[in-house]
Simulated scan of single mutants.
Amino acid sequence: MSSSQAVRDSAKKLVNLLEKYPKDRIPHLVTFKEVQVSRFRRVAGLPSVDDKGKSVKDKKPSLDEIKSIINRTSGPLGLNKETLAKIQNSVSNEKFTEESINQQIHALSTIMGNKFRNYYDVGDKLYKPAGNPRYYQRLIDEIEGKKNENIFTAMRTVLFGK
């Protein structure tokens, strides 16, 4: 098996693992999962997909197409040579090996398996401090929008700490 085929197969495994990665609890414009899946889909040679799982054609030029445009012309879009040199130096040159992708697969599976959370368990003393045992639960409820505090309960919390 050639090295490029091995890299593609490893990237496919990484994409499958990334698709199992849980969604963020707080919605963001761009998430880790979305960025990494689109990045490694290109490496694996897989088509891009939208939220519903349908393949879509990329409207944006790929990194290779941008590099090609920059290298083919002496001054694209009226850029002087100094600016062009800065752009060429700042464009990342991603070269993946099978070993580097396998390391990323191992790291992601470790994160998804909560290996270090289980290994360095902190216990209830930190999760439920004696002075304010509901502190972290109130934060999580507020983030998830389950329970909103009104002005009176917020003032009570500030004044009395509970």
Score class of each variant (00 low, 15 high):
Glu34His: 13
Glu34Met: 12
Glu34Ala: 14
Val35Leu: 10
Val35Gln: 08
Val35Pro: 00
Gln36Cys: 10
Val37Phe: 07
Val37Glu: 01
Val37Asp: 04
Val37Pro: 09
Val37Gln: 02
Ser38Leu: 07
Phe40Cys: 03
Phe40Val: 01
Phe40Pro: 04
Phe40Ser: 05
Phe40Gly: 03
Phe40Asn: 03
Phe40Glu: 05
Arg41Glu: 03
Arg41Pro: 08
Arg41Tyr: 00
Arg42Cys: 03
Arg42Gly: 03
Arg42Asn: 02
Arg42Val: 05
Arg42Ile: 07
Val43Gln: 05
Val43Arg: 05
Val43Leu: 11
Val43Phe: 07
Ala44Met: 09
Gly45Ile: 08
Gly45Cys: 11
Gly45Met: 02
Gly45Phe: 00
Gly45Ala: 04
Leu46Gly: 11
Ser48His: 04
Ser48Cys: 08
Ser48Phe: 03
Val49Ser: 13
Val49Ala: 13
Val49Gly: 09
Val49Tyr: 06
Asp50Met: 03
Asp50Glu: 09
Asp50Ile: 00
Asp50Tyr: 02
Asp50Arg: 10
Asp51Asn: 01
Lys52Cys: 01
Gly53Asn: 07
Gly53Gln: 03
Gly53Ala: 09
Gly53Met: 03
Gly53Ser: 09
Lys54Trp: 08
Lys54Pro: 00
Ser55Arg: 13
Ser55Leu: 00
Ser55Met: 04
Ser55Glu: 10
Val56Tyr: 05
Val56Glu: 02
Val56Arg: 09
Val56Phe: 01
Lys57His: 04
Lys57Arg: 01
Asp58Arg: 05
Asp58Cys: 11
Asp58Ile: 05
Lys59Glu: 12
Lys59Tyr: 09
Lys59Leu: 14
Lys60Met: 13
Pro61Cys: 08
Pro61Lys: 11
Ser62Thr: 15
Ser62Phe: 00
Leu63Asp: 08
Leu63Tyr: 03
Leu63Lys: 11
Leu63Phe: 06
Asp64His: 10
Asp64Gln: 15
Asp64Arg: 12
Glu65Ser: 15
Glu65Ala: 14
Glu65Gln: 15
Ile66Met: 15
Ile66Asp: 02
Ile66Gly: 01
Ile66Cys: 10
Lys67Arg: 15
Lys67Asn: 11
Lys67Tyr: 12
Ser68Thr: 04
Ser68Pro: 03
Ser68Ile: 00
Ile69Asn: 09
Ile69Cys: 10
Ile69Glu: 11
Ile69Asp: 12
Ile70Tyr: 07
Ile70Phe: 13
Ile70Asn: 04
Ile70Ala: 12
Ile70Asp: 08
Asn71Pro: 08
Asn71Thr: 15
Asn71Ala: 15
Arg72Lys: 14
Arg72Tyr: 13
